[in-house]
Design a protein around this nucleic acid. Sequence first.
DNA 1: GCAAAAGTGTTGGAAATACACCCATGT
DNA 2: ACATGGGTGTATTTCCAACACTTTTGC
Lengths: 243, 243
Amino acid sequence: MENEVKNPGFKTLQKIQSEVKSSNTIALSVDCVIFGFDENKLKVLLIRSDLKKYQGKWSLLGDLMRSEEDLDDAAYRILKQRTGLNDVYLEQVHTFGKINRHPAGRVITVTYCSLINIRHHKLNILDNELHWHDIDNLADLAFDHQEIFDTCYTRLQKRVQEHPLGFNLLPKKFSLRDLQNLYEAILGFKMDRRNFRKKFFTMDFLIDLKEIEQNVPHRPGKLYEFNYSKYEKRKKKWAGIDF
Amino acid sequence: MENEVKNPGFKTLQKIQSEVKSSNTIALSVDCVIFGFDENKLKVLLIRSDLKKYQGKWSLLGDLMRSEEDLDDAAYRILKQRTGLNDVYLEQVHTFGKINRHPAGRVITVTYCSLINIRHHKLNILDNELHWHDIDNLADLAFDHQEIFDTCYTRLQKRVQEHPLGFNLLPKKFSLRDLQNLYEAILGFKMDRRNFRKKFFTMDFLIDLKEIEQNVPHRPGKLYEFNYSKYEKRKKKWAGIDF
DNA sequence: GCAAAAGTGTTGGAAATACACCCATGT
DNA sequence: ACATGGGTGTATTTCCAACACTTTTGC
């Protein structure tokens, strides 16, 4: 914004301030689509709606924004409140602003996608209304949260192919089978094991930890770590026109 | 949002409504990064800032949101006001919400990227403070509009490789040279002419209009049209993991 | 006939795919 | 020993990048 349609003269700050104030009939919220990965399934963290109208339904984790915090900080705050985690992967996805999306009035919501390792925050869930849902088993979410989820999930499917986001969902040490299971869960189809391995070995971003899995009822796989610093150094290449 | 941190009971609509109202100290605006293509250069439409603090600087086209309109509609309204055009390509890109991004107070802005054919709206520009700027010649934009522009431009560079957006910047009938010039302008480097043609002919989305350019001082090129319906029918393929 | 850009094919290398066998471990 | 999944290699195909000459038009 910052401009009115037809106005040859300059505006004073005071003028703008009064416009800003008088336009102030829209509330802003932040909603987080928090993904996790457990038992080879992709999960999303939901909370029971605290709104009577949506009694019994599940909703995304969110809150109204505070006027004195940065937008991104609001998203971090929500994550911290709910999961107790700092330093999680968090990315803004889309802003939803249909007029009637919220029954309490005009609320526009900025949505973020977050990826966390379920094992790292088990504790915070047990006693409240939070629950990890299978992503293929969502039903009847509150508000427009199904649409928001769908948007974030589609974005995740795309992003995970182009950037090494997925490792945020795995423990620091993982086997190649773990990694493939993750990709298959996110993308929704099976891949050839040999070609999958070849792909990642050719990329050369995995550090062989010289350790193997424990307590598996078959030949144990080797464990790896993702080499972020190597990845960061490599310049992105030109991908090519393709549609 | 839609939830408070710790609250076992349900909220009434009235409770939520009062929260929404009391949180109402953030204003919302929409800013549009409007791209055009002329003389083989990528351009962005800017307006002189009407804020004294930014006197002489250029800014993106935007306005405060109205509480009774959909978010997307607000973006369309701004485009319509400024260019007189309906039916333009418009896509939400990102929401910017740093605390001090606007001198008049807390204003969060949702930004949209728009692509228009410059020839179609020449009329609306002449008499006011609008101007098409070369994208490699921007200097000293108002507010955080440089950052917003950069974000939208980067997004455009990526999107144009994966989707047929670019045609929105060209006239309905265009030559392959026009198309290549457009891609080179957006992506910022030269491509091999033969491979470029091969690429688009192989995609098979161009309709040969059996017409040729007029009034060119050399052999005229054939004119084409983009076949949107054919494109829509073709299912997107799996792109592959690549980072 | 000359300048300027259109139009066209081939080839070599890289990457993706499809596919089958042996190996290490737990039971 | 056997069941389970780990680990590996090769042939085929597809896609991309590099590259040069002929054709058509305006002047």
